[in-house]
Simulated scan of single mutants.
Amino acid sequence: MRNLFAFIYRFRAFLVFVLLESLCVYLIVRYNTYQGAAFFNSASRYIGQVLEFKSDITDYFRLTSVNSTLASENAELRKELLQFKLAAQADSASRLDTAIYAPSDTARVAPYLLHAGRVIHNSVRRTNNYMTLSIGSADGVQPGMGVIASNGAVGRVKTVSEHYATVTSLLHSQMLMSAKIKKDNTFGTIKWQGGDYRTALLDYVPLHIKPVKGDTIVTSGFNTVFPEGIMIGTISGVAKEQDKSFYTIKVKLAVDFAQLSYVYVVENTRKAERDTLELNAGIQTDE
């Protein structure tokens, strides 16, 4: 307290000056219309800038929460879009003469659910690449479910804990994905052979087919992991090799695996029923 009084006594002249100046400014602003308007306009501008700066800082630290919310909303929208596309396929198939063509299971609407998750670990430079997601069994994720991104297929869930899941990336030497050429429905198998993480191979396309550079490759829908028509990539090269009955087709993948931040886990609520049926029948599906 003694130091405070000493400080006030030492700077008494300056403090009195500041007090009088403040009083003068108050009286000028209070009793003069023009000066008052100018003061409040300036004050509002500066206060607005301070509040905007504060809001920017707050929003920055809320980005994770905002992105999670947007990803969940996108998952719902993508689910509706997927169901709409499948419904359109089923509707177009039902209009055909069933004596000539009977709609297959892949043309019928299947109840797919999408679970949005953030990628918290990812690799692209190894022979067998994996990623880790920030969602798990508590969010409805189970091993074997497919994983897609906003622009294409990503991989398949390998293991799950309560709040996390690991995913076998398409960039894995043992990962096979049933695919087809969109323009003519010729199916094959996508496999990554290492090296460039943006390029894979489409195997088992017979020589009587005429694939060309630029053709779109999508999921075939022949398994319970991925819905039909999910983008995989585009053909970047086609070659015929001697003593082989299939083309060697290079596919430029639609997904840039080095830049994944959010993905969607695909839940097929009829997967268990179909898998059990095919297992009992001794049918092996290429997923």
Rank of each mutant, 00 (worst) to 15 (best):
A239S: 05
I190Y: 11
S261Q: 09
H163N: 12
V218Q: 00
L63S: 12
F53W: 05
T269Y: 10
K85I: 02
V147N: 05
T166S: 08
F222P: 00
G36K: 05
I217Y: 11
A107K: 11
G152I: 05
T224H: 10
V154T: 07
K250M: 04
K182G: 00
H121W: 07
M145P: 01
D105M: 08
D275R: 06
D139H: 07
L19Q: 08
H121C: 00
L170Y: 00
V109W: 03
T276Y: 12
L202Q: 09
E162A: 12
D286V: 15
M1A: 11
L170A: 03
S134V: 01
T285D: 02
A116R: 09
H121P: 00
L86F: 01
K244H: 08
N122M: 15
V154Y: 09
K182P: 00
V251N: 03
V16I: 15
L77R: 15
G155N: 12
N67T: 02
V263N: 05
L114V: 02
L253V: 05
P206T: 02
V29F: 05
R2P: 11
T248I: 08
I135V: 15
Y31E: 13
T276A: 14
S44E: 03
L253K: 04
L207K: 14
R95I: 15
Y101H: 11
F222S: 08
S236M: 01
A88N: 07
F187I: 03
T219E: 04
A13P: 00
N280Q: 15
S173L: 13
S261K: 09
P103N: 14
V141F: 14
S55E: 10
Q193E: 13
R95S: 13
E228L: 14
R62N: 12
Y101I: 09
E162K: 07
G136T: 15
T33D: 09
T159F: 06
G194L: 07
V160C: 02
A281M: 14
T33R: 07
Y130K: 14
V266A: 04
V160A: 01
T199G: 00
L170R: 00
F5C: 04
Y31K: 12
R95Y: 09
T248C: 08
